[in-house]
């Protein structure tokens, strides 16, 4: 390592400090708003720290009494968890064999590119027929219908990640299995999947976060508590009749907690996935 001058070291720490503030300040403010009294939030000059903390909004928003703000948000939260889980599972089911096939048979690589190419389609280009199609199938405002649509966002992504994850697994293993008389699906299940477990985990995590974040399709294809996801629910809450900014901030904190905690706990997995996707291209 090269020697660093004192000036450079100071410069480094100043930059690092600024970066930390830049990242953390908005989060901190969201949290402070969620525990400030309404009076503090609408005072001029603004009170940066509440005179006394007020946690009541967390109670309001986690209250499960039917037909309340809390019930609406919690139901949406559960819907989000379910929709994201169904979509993630389904996307793995289709993209594990696909990623494997492309990894082993480069000749069919074009098909993966075709699938990845769909990433360029803006959701608005598919929304109208999807809407009409879901309507015809009676799947509008259902979790399953929404998950099916999410599959189209997740599958290209997971297939791509999985293909690059399968690539380094030696083929000799498969050949040996074939000689032992294993069928293709057995090979995949017994030999490949355990080896590829980490990359499958990464893909699943990404898929889950992507599905959690989705807003546009959820806005169009859900209409009430039966399928409405948390992103739509908090957009509705914030756009509606709420005179208290703290309540909006609290809803934001609640909706952000799952992915942010996921992100922090699983950061190594996430970063490896991000950079795998990015660097390998």
């Amino acid at each position: 390592m090269e020697r660093q001058s004192l000036g450079f070291t100071v410069f480094l720490y100043v930059c690092a400090g600024l970066l930390a503030i830049m990242i953390l300040a908005p989060f901190a403010w969201l949290f402070i708003m969620s525990i400030s009294s309404t009076t503090d939030l609408v005072s001029k000059p603004l009170h940066w720290w509440p005179a006394e903390t007020n946690w009541s909004r967390y109670r309001i928003l986690t209250d499960l009494t039917p037909n309340t703000h809390g019930a609406a948000l919690m139901t949406a939260l559960v819907n989000s968890i379910e929709v994201a889980a169904i979509a993630t599972f389904a996307s793995l089911v289709v993209s594990v064999p696909a990623g494997w096939a492309v990894s082993r048979t480069p000749a069919v690589g074009w098909s993966l590119w075709l699938v990845i190419g769909t990433y360029m389609l803006p959701p608005v280009a598919l929304a109208v027929p999807l809407y009409m199609g879901l309507a015809a199938l009676g799947m509008l405002n259902t979790k399953f219908g929404l998950a099916l649509v999410y599959l189209t966002i997740l599958a290209p992504f997971t297939a791509w990640l999985l293909k690059s994850g399968f690539d380094p697994i030696p083929r000799d293993l498969e050949k040996a299995a074939a000689i032992d008389g294993a069928r293709l699906d057995q090979t995949l299940r017994i030999i490949i999947l355990p080896l590829a477990a980490p990359v499958i985990g990464t893909a699943a995590l990404f898929a889950y976060l992507l599905a959690w974040d989705e807003f546009f399709y959820a806005l169009l294809f859900t209409s009430d508590h039966r399928a409405k996801t948390v992103t739509v629910a908090i957009a509705d809450l914030a756009g509606g009749r709420v005179s208290d900014y703290g309540l909006i901030a609290t809803a934001g904190v609640i909706a952000a907690l799952p992915p942010v905690i996921f992100g922090l706990v699983m950061q190594r997995t996430l970063i490896s996935g991000l950079t795998r996707g990015g660097v390998k291209g």
């Binding site: 309507a135 009676g138 509008l140 405002n141 209409s223």
Partner: peptide
């Protein structure tokens, strides 16, 4: 969102 929701929900059988 009221206007658009009303129209969009028409498509779902149980709107």
């Amino acid at each position: 969102g009221l206007h658009d929701k009303t129209l969009l929900a028409l498509g779902s059988g149980s709107g």
